[in-house]
Design a protein around this nucleic acid. Sequence first.
DNA 1: TAGATTGTTAATCGATTAACAATC
DNA 2: TAGATTGTTAATCGATTAACAATC
Lengths: 218, 218
Amino acid sequence: MAKCKVSYAPSVRRLPSYLLIAKQSLEHGDEYVSGTLIAAELNLEPIQVRKDLSITGIAGKPKRGYPVAPLIAAIESYLNWDKRVDAIVVGAGNLGSALSGFPGFRLHGLFIVAAFDVDTAKAGLTIHDTPVYPIEELADRVSKLGVTVAILTVPSANAQVVASTLASAGITAIWNFTNVKLKVPEDIVVQNEDLSSGYAMLSMKRRICLEPPEGDAD
Amino acid sequence: MAKCKVSYAPSVRRLPSYLLIAKQSLEHGDEYVSGTLIAAELNLEPIQVRKDLSITGIAGKPKRGYPVAPLIAAIESYLNWDKRVDAIVVGAGNLGSALSGFPGFRLHGLFIVAAFDVDTAKAGLTIHDTPVYPIEELADRVSKLGVTVAILTVPSANAQVVASTLASAGITAIWNFTNVKLKVPEDIVVQNEDLSSGYAMLSMKRRICLEPPEGDAD
DNA sequence: TAGATTGTTAATCGATTAACAATC
DNA sequence: TAGATTGTTAATCGATTAACAATC
C-alpha cells in the first residue's frame, strides 16, 4: 500500500461527527453553531473542536460560532465528500448487504453501484437497489463502470486473492472489512476497518471503567 | 457514560492483530515468534510491537522472540478475552445479522446469545443460531440471561430510546454501531464504532496518497 | 563465538490542552 | 457596553521512535 500519512488523522476522524451536528443545526434552522455547543453534544472540549475545525479553513464569528451552511460545505470539501464517488461491494453476505444499504454513505457522496459474490446463485439479485454480479465479471464491469473504490467484505480466507483481483482490475482504494493485512501494490490505498480493535477497547473499558460487581462470572 | 480513560489505547487497538499472528504461528507449529516478524507482517516497526507487547507482561527471549503459547495467553488475559462474555444484539437487520454470525467473536470469548428486533415478524426466527425475540421481551430476557453486554445495530432514529431501555435492563456495556452519541448513565461504558470516521480516512487517503490521474471525475 | 533480538532509557514527534488577546 | 466565543501561541501530555546495553 502507498506509504503515505494523513495529517491530523485524529481530527479527520472527528470531522464526520461535527458534520452530523452541523446538518442537524441546518435542519433546525440555525444560522450559526458554536464550537462550544458541538463539544457539549459530543462530550469533547471546545478547544478541540475549534482546533479540528481550523484544518478545514472555516472561519467562525466571535460570540456566534460557525455559520452552519459554510461549515457544512467546508467539512465536506475538505473530506472530498462534496463530489460523487462510485464504489463496488465485494462479498454480498450480510455485512456487504448492510453496507450497501447504509443510508449514511450517499449523504457522503458514496454510491454503491454494484456488488459481487462468488455465490453464483446471488447473481441477478438486487440488494438495496444494488445489482449483484458473479465475481468473474468484476474486472470487466469495474473497467466499464470506471469505479476505483471497493468495499471488501469477503471471508478472510479469500481476502488476499480478491484484493489482488481488485488491484489488477484498476481499483485504487480498498475499504477493508476483513482482518487480513492486504498485500497490494504501492499505488493502492487501503483503509482497514478492524472490528477486533473496537472490541478490544470495549473489553478494556469493561475491565477498567466498571466497578467489578461481586460475583462477576459472565 | 463512565468518564474513564483506557491507558495505552493505541497499543490496545493493535493487540488483536498481534494475537492473530501469534495464533497463526501456533497453527504453523512455531514455538517462538519474534517482534521483528510480527512487525514485518503488519507493516509496523519492531520497536512498536515490543513496546505494545510489554504492556501485557509477556517476556521474550533474545534471539528467539516471544514464546507463542504464553504470548497468546498474555494478550488474551490482558484483554479479558480468556473468559466467556455473553452479549445480545439489538436490531436484527443486516448489520446485526452479520455481527451475530461473525466467526471471530467466539474466538475472543464473545457469545451472542440472543437478538432483538422491533419487527415482530422476525421473532421466532434464528440468525446464525441466535434466536430473535421481540424487543418488548428485552428487559425480561436480559435479566434472566444475566447478560451485561449489548451490540447496538438499530436505525439511528431509535438508538437513544433503545440505549435507555438497555440501561434500565441492566446492560453495562454498549457496543454502538449507530452514529448517535448516546446519553447513558455514568455506570455504563460505550464503545462507538464509527463507520464515517473510517470513510473519512479513506477519503483523505485517496486525496493525498493517490496521484490524481488526469480526468479524475468519479 | 557472533549476531539477532529483547527490553529499557532517552529523544523526538505530534496531539491535546491551557492561556489569552481579538472581536463581534 | 459586557460577555461569549473565536483563533493563535505556548505548554503539556502521551505516543512513537531511536539508541544501546543485556542476553540467549
